[in-house]
Design a binder for these strands. Structure first.
Lengths: 149, 149
DNA sequence: GTACGAATTCAAGCCAACTTGAGGTCAAGC
DNA sequence: GCTTGACCTCAAGTTGGCTTGAATTCGTAC
């Protein structure tokens, strides 16, 4: 059998059935057949799900991700959009690094009140000035937690 | 006047009044007085809002952020918790860097279909295997979008 | 041929983080 | 002393990405 039963997909990807059905509902993936009621998926759904996971992790919304797959179901994304996203990720990385530094500082600085610690203020200032260079509102990638139970 | 009218806070931070009220409602910030009905804030709310913005950008939820401020309104967190958070941030940074690389690759690789490009497959594999190495449930910071509209 | 278990549908629910809207209040300027 | 406009309160709505639950349908194993 070269089709994958939904149960198999679940098992191999960890993506819950409800999510798979939801993805199909919104046209993000599609099942190629049924076995009784059971959805059967083409083998390459696995790759697609990886890409979807990555896309989500990179901050694309599901509609954006589905926009990335051409009619032929292969990834097909405008290069400039990708570059923009890479840049946005870069910005996010910088921000996280700053935050990490602030947090480390707070953890280690012996000053009684951080507000009065000059190096804290400095960190904070650089952390808050840089994003100010953001235009009004950035397209903003978001990294969602891997939900698990 | 060393109090800031809510309007002033809005103007200086870009945070909308509804959000400020919401933050106050959930105890994240507090107003120190009223002028008529108008909330007046202490000057240091600006600093606090910066910290909140940073925290959000770093993926902390609002409850988490408010947990970071002690009773006295100063950041007050157990050091080991902070170090743990810094480590988690570090992990997140690494992940984002990988994603950025994958995305850049996709943008630049001349292969007709990425699926057939070996280096894409390799990147993809490393990108999708690594998050699997996450333990069951990390404290999990998430980077939320700056909602726009 | 019946029990089982895993899948199905469909509608409704959930969460965070806000926003919106209706109706009300107040200080300041004229 | 009246108008103005920025604020107020409170409840309800919004969005995205799913999950949950009740009632149902299958294929397979016995």
């Amino acid at each position: 059998m070269h089709f994958l039963d939904i149960g198999e997909v679940v098992e191999r990807t960890g993506v819950p059935p409800s999510t798979l059905r939801y993805y199909e509902e919104i046209g993000l993936i599609r099942s190629v057949a049924r076995h009784g009621l059971r959805r059967q998926f083409d083998h390459d759904v696995l790759m697609k799900l990886s890409l979807i996971a990555m896309g989500k992790a990179a901050g694309f919304s599901l509609p954006e991700i589905s926009g990335m797959f051409g009619r032929d179901d292969r990834p097909d994304i405008p290069r400039d959009q990708l570059h923009a996203r890479a840049k946005e990720l870069e910005r996010q990385i910088v921000e996280l690094r700053m935050l990490r530094d602030v947090i480390r500082h707070v953890a280690d600085c012996p000053a009684p009140s951080h507000m009065e610690c000059p190096s804290f203020r400095k960190l904070l200032k650089s952390a808050t000035t840089t994003p100010a260079s953001r235009p009004p509102k950035p397209p903003a990638a978001r990294v969602r937690p891997a939900r698990r139970r």
